[in-house]
Simulated scan of single mutants.
Amino acid sequence: MTKLEVTPGRWWHRLDDGRVQCDLCPRDCRLHEGQRGMCFVRQRVGDAMVLTTYGRSSGFCIDPIEKKPLNHFLPGSSVLSFGTAGCNLACKFCQNWDISKSREMDRLMDTASPERIAEAARAGGASSVAFTYNDPVIFAEYAMDTADACHALGLRSVAVTAGYMHAAPRREFYARMDAANVDLKGFTEGFYFQQTGAHLAPVLDTLQYLRHETDCWFEITTLLIPGHNDSDTEIDAMTRWIADHLGPDVPLHFTAFHPDYRMLDVEPTPPATLTRARAIALGNGLHHVYTGNVHDIQGGTTFCPGCHAALVRRDWYLVLDCDLDATGTCPHCGTPVAGRFDTFEGAFTRGFGRRRIPVRLSA
């Protein structure tokens, strides 16, 4: 392995029985020599932990920021996106399973240092770099170093994550993130344990930490799976919790499931389910609720929480028009709109739409 492929891992300790425990996430993997954690990319080598995917990516693309999805973070801007391999959850419904569930290092097709990534993002006209496709928690050292390189060039950093992380690394990780989209995969412990192999409480802890102890802008995404996490009761409980514990201004995205990975026997989510969920969330006081993976201009539009004027209209991921300037205030009534905004330059002139533009970084 080259220097880029293996780097010392952080957040671990030795146990009395001779094993090494990874302290990055609640998995608490305890490893003998040569063993890898559940995420597959953190490995014990000798008496220490290493990250085997540092500097290696499954590919780079230029995306619209709305594809993360982030609707209140630099609307209409572009973002350089990349991921690695592996994941610390075991979602049966994973929509990126060929990357996140990969156990083959040849899935990592491109190599790049943090500095090279930041330079490529700036050269490509991106305003930010997103750690996505698989969960950046498991390659936190690489993501954090890349975030530092981005900040040195005036770019922002974005984490797309399930939020399954211990408190100590979480503090260091989110201190470097300007924005995040957190997957809240359901709102019952049964769903989390049976369908993801994880637990709900650590994710709720991460959401409350982001809201009350950081300046990181974040939005929430829930993939609604028919018969599993889409009941009125669960959606009502989840959105009431968000309103009570996080506040009404946190944007929430309900997205449509399609059969994939180990959940091929479940039908796709009907658009009416997303519309119903959005109505419940709005009824519980949330100001910004969106639908995704369906064609729904109403569900993709940002409305003023004061006068309800349409401020950012979207068609899929294409921003049709934006009435918000860098101050983020409604021009019609002066109500502040929560988010991180900048001067809108007309994303439709870039011709993004639903496309992603592949970028090759290695020689």
Rank of each mutant, 00 (worst) to 15 (best):
L108A: 11
D135R: 00
F60M: 08
I62V: 15
S58M: 08
L89K: 06
L80G: 06
I99T: 14
G124W: 02
L70V: 14
G76I: 00
L89I: 12
S57P: 08
M49V: 15
A123K: 12
S100Y: 09
I65H: 08
V41M: 07
C91H: 08
H72Y: 06
R107H: 10
D63H: 15
G76L: 01
C39G: 06
S128P: 01
F40M: 09
S78G: 05
F93Y: 15
D106G: 00
T132C: 10
R107K: 14
I138F: 05
A120V: 13
W97K: 02
G86S: 09
A112W: 07
Q95L: 04
S57T: 15
N71L: 14
S127L: 08
S102F: 03
N88P: 01
V50F: 14
D106K: 11
T84W: 00
N71G: 07
V137M: 07
E115F: 00
T132R: 09
F73I: 07
W97M: 01
C87Y: 06
Y133L: 11
L89A: 13
E119D: 11
R116L: 05
C94Y: 08
G76V: 00
R116D: 10
E104W: 02
D63G: 06
R42C: 05
G59D: 03
K68H: 07
C87D: 08
N71R: 12
T84S: 15
M38F: 15
M109S: 11
Y133F: 15
P114M: 07
E66Q: 10
C61L: 04
M109Q: 10
Q43F: 00
A121E: 03
R42N: 14
T53M: 03
G76K: 07
S57G: 10
R44G: 09
I117H: 09
